[in-house]
Design a protein around this nucleic acid. Sequence first.
DNA 1: CTGAAAGCGCTTACAG
DNA 2: CTGAAAGCGCTTACAG
Lengths: 355, 355
Amino acid sequence: MTTVRKIAQEAGVSVATVSRALNNDAAISERTRELVLTIANNRGYMARTGRRVTTYVGFACSGEQVLSHPFEAGVLDGVAQGVAESGYNVVLLNLKRGKRRDETYTQFFMRHGVRGAVLRIVAGSRGICHAIAEEGFPHVVISERFDSADISCVDCDSRPDSLRAIEYLIALGHRRIAFATHTVPDHDQQDRFEGYKEALLNHGIAVEDRLILRHPGSLAGGASVLKVVMSMPERPTAVYCADWMLAVGAVKAAHELSVRVPDDLSIIGFDDADGRHCVHPTLTAVCQDAVKLGVEASARLVKILDGDAQAPFQFTAPTFFEVNESTGPPPAHVVRIVANGNGSARSDESGAGGA
Amino acid sequence: MTTVRKIAQEAGVSVATVSRALNNDAAISERTRELVLTIANNRGYMARTGRRVTTYVGFACSGEQVLSHPFEAGVLDGVAQGVAESGYNVVLLNLKRGKRRDETYTQFFMRHGVRGAVLRIVAGSRGICHAIAEEGFPHVVISERFDSADISCVDCDSRPDSLRAIEYLIALGHRRIAFATHTVPDHDQQDRFEGYKEALLNHGIAVEDRLILRHPGSLAGGASVLKVVMSMPERPTAVYCADWMLAVGAVKAAHELSVRVPDDLSIIGFDDADGRHCVHPTLTAVCQDAVKLGVEASARLVKILDGDAQAPFQFTAPTFFEVNESTGPPPAHVVRIVANGNGSARSDESGAGGA
DNA sequence: CTGAAAGCGCTTACAG
DNA sequence: CTGAAAGCGCTTACAG
């Protein structure tokens, strides 16, 4: 390990001079400073003490998250923005890979120079949040909700806007409305399902199991949703895809199967970012702003660390419902796609879309 | 500032005991350990010395980057993956906001516990890379290219596949091919333009200024590209959109204006991630893998830090050209869209697409 | 399981 | 502009 002593030896100066050179003390010659810094770089010197070690805010994941997913990327972007003016920086941590068995979360974070943590976990790792809160370590959980008042969290409640979205379809005349979700259970999908159910119940429409579809949150999953929906007997005239990849995949499959959106089928999507605008027709969608979630979480965490806010806290960010081009009245003639040997045929079920 | 001494006082134990509690020494009672950790958390204790301070790899941006952009998000994802097994963690740094005037880059990084830096800069900030290389600080620049052999960098060369892409169009029979780029100059756009030009020259096709379009790298920019292309006299029968948002925006605008892709117009896009699959028709595209770029950069950096590889180095990752559905032969009848008072009309320029 | 003390890495008045 | 020395924060054999 490289210490000031070793650098001093190599440079032929005192440790005091090395220290001053490393810290840009005014009283140091340019020549000496450069000499010391060069040796420090060559030896991979890293200060192990001193006043000036910066502290961090951690973006701590349970490990399953894909950072390039639009939601995670948006959240991380926001987390970085939220600490921008604070003097803190953001460090990426993996709660499962990095932490030793024999240390607490507090110790894990301290070892990394982290004073507070923004937590991104999956449903199966909620225990981590309880443990961190119990240890009293400053934290904010993003996109999860807890009964315990000790856990600080920031999330979106997409139930109200999901309800509005379905009621919008009902107002357009739709009565058979499918709900599509991805296969990883989380409270967000649950919220959207609750909103869906509540809207149907409000209008005396039965919630039918066969209209609740579960497919992988991918383009292929979205294509499956579209095919299943379009080939059902008494097929739905609208579908709410509560995940953005499902929505995009469904729209794409509609083009491929010449299903006209919204003339043949209305699609409501969910959007974490700008995905709804990338497809044609532009998706009517329930939207959350992942960047804002991240900003909210890290800015609040910094305030807590600086003593300007109290923990724990709970904050629910609004979603919004945006009407675009993928929704319209149900078709007068409900055409269904029936798979046969060599592809698909169309079967007319006129009027099935009515109330 | 909270020190072991203060915690010791509050807990009524020696500093030695505090140190042992903080470091999970086996010889410590559970009761004492919890007491000490609770006080440490309450006081926001942060170790300022000791053996165990972790060191970091920095993901250092010049500040203009949007972390939620698919390319940046992919790169960052890759950078995190590339250090996953190494014991290093990644910290997000802003080279312009965080650095003090009176410190070198080396000092800036050392102050943050950063041993090596992955650099993401814009064309206007290339001087930063020269300065860091001159200081001898371990680094890898992503997606820039330098004459100086002292600068380590990882990038993609999209020229060869851009050339292939245009030659593919030429082989399909296209002769008037437009090139669309975004408005921020960078070497990637330049590479793609070079490939475009070379392909045309190889086949004796003149490079026409009016077929080179510059629009903001957004959906609106892509829509403009499509409209301009479709309304040109002797309009192009194909366009290479060298930026993924331009490509997606162009495809979307084609739907809106009932321009059939590829029957009326072939579109080749560029893709940093999976965008080409999200639209209909799936885009024929030149693709780079942002995640792989990030992995390559940070994994190599870690090897350099661990003494397992030599710096400086230059690595050029391959792109790939993927033929999908957005390209086909030029139309026999080249229909042009001419804007008029209330919208647009079509004007037939039959045969203009032929060789 | 804990403390007193030695020791390491670093910084900083003080002296020159 | 530099060094010798005091001092701080922390860790770790050593002793009990």
